[in-house]
Simulated assay, not measured.
Amino acid sequence: MNAPLKRAYAFCARFGLRVPILLAPMAGACPPSLSIALMNAGSLGAAGVLLMKPAEILAWAEEVRSKGAGPFQLNTWIPDPPPARDPAHEALLRDFLAGWGPTVPPEAADATPPDFDAQCEAILEAAPPMVSSVMGLFPPAFVARLKERGILWIANISTVAEAKAAEAAGADIIAAQGAEAGGHRGCFDAAGAERQAVGLFSLLPAVVDAVSLPVVAAGGIADARGVAAALMLGASAVAIGTGFLRCPEARIHPAWADALARTAPEDTMISCAFSGRAGRSIATDYVRAAVAEGAPAPAPYPVQRGLTAAMRTAATKDGDVQRMQAWAGQSAAMARAEPAADVLHSLWDGARALLEG
């Protein structure tokens, strides 16, 4: 057996998996049904719990634990500093957004995410085999509590410097996320998220060389060739998000799922147009207008998320992908509208054939 396959199988044996292809945690797009299907097929389930209250976190974990035969992870954001508020600029944004959806009331900008400390307590109570972080590192006291309970920590990073910091902070696994990834990237510095857009196949080998921990490759992987290439470059496993979104178990809006199939790599765009944090989505009419010259700059996270909520809700109700928060990685068109287990096994069978050949 060659070195990439030995490394992948060793990762699976260590962490209770049969397939070294993990579900990437996606806030708002990781229903229990998707994790259950993948866990039962030998993968790692995942939930992005950023928008979930403690009771919702516990309910999600209870359902996947009762129906899924395998491990799972719970993922949350490290909080940003309180956003700088500018009422005059927020008024400009409300006027702009009114052209894309319902009238936006001033109080929409006051939106706040669920309490991080309460989420952490719920995560500990749920006792998943693994947790993961994005946008920074867990506080040392929380890391100590994870280790007391034997819960492994996957630290999502986007630069070599972040990977080294995560290893020093006690992470057990590094998830190296390239700029090709859909949705929000796990950048520690919000201001630098768009400037430091490192592609996966430059980031991955540099991170593998810089740390002694197992590295999971994420961002733009959606077919067997990508899986095999990541393992050849030193990854122990890969994480896939967009590549599973067209599976029926993902339960995303049909208009979003259909649009993914038509999205070329150059038809995606990184912007702060939906949340105030840099994220890659389909380059829809709204996104292009929001980043055009003369458009008001997005407010910081989570103010922008609150301001765009009415538009996003209306777009989903109307089935209008041009106004939806249609996250998409650059390999979106490779996603297949097939059962998640079938996609998983096809990816791994194909990657293994490439690596063995």
Rank of each mutant, 00 (worst) to 15 (best):
L5M: 02
Y9V: 10
R18E: 15
V19Y: 08
L22H: 02
L23F: 00
A24K: 09
C30Q: 00
P32S: 05
S33Q: 15
A37Q: 14
G45S: 14
G48M: 06
V49R: 01
M52W: 00
P54M: 13
A55G: 10
E56H: 05
L58M: 05
E63W: 00
V64E: 06
A69Y: 01
I78M: 12
P81D: 03
R85C: 07
D86L: 11
A88P: 09
L92R: 07
A98S: 12
W100N: 01
W100S: 01
G101D: 09
G101K: 02
A108M: 00
P113N: 01
P114W: 03
E125I: 10
A126T: 03
S133A: 14
M135I: 01
M135G: 04
G136Y: 04
F138E: 10
P140A: 11
F142P: 13
R145M: 10
W153C: 11
T159G: 05
V160Q: 05
A166Y: 07
E167R: 01
A171M: 12
A171K: 02
A175D: 12
A179T: 10
C187Y: 01
C187L: 07
A191T: 10
Q196I: 13
Q196F: 13
V198M: 03
L200R: 08
S202D: 15
G220A: 10
I221G: 15
I221E: 15
A224Q: 09
G226H: 04
A229R: 07
V238T: 08
V238L: 04
H253L: 04
P254Q: 07
W256E: 01
D258Q: 11
A259R: 06
A261K: 00
R262W: 03
D267K: 06
G276S: 04
R280V: 15
T284Q: 05
T284A: 09
D285T: 13
D285G: 15
Y286R: 03
A290F: 06
V291L: 10
A299N: 06
Q304M: 12
A310L: 08
A314Q: 08
G319L: 02
V321I: 15
R323F: 02
M324N: 06
Q325L: 03
A328L: 08
G329E: 08
Q330F: 07
S331G: 10
S331P: 04
A332S: 01
A340K: 00
D342K: 07
D342R: 00
V343L: 05
L344W: 02
H345C: 12
H345T: 13
S346F: 01
L347G: 09
W348I: 12
D349E: 15
A353L: 14
A353V: 09
L354Y: 07
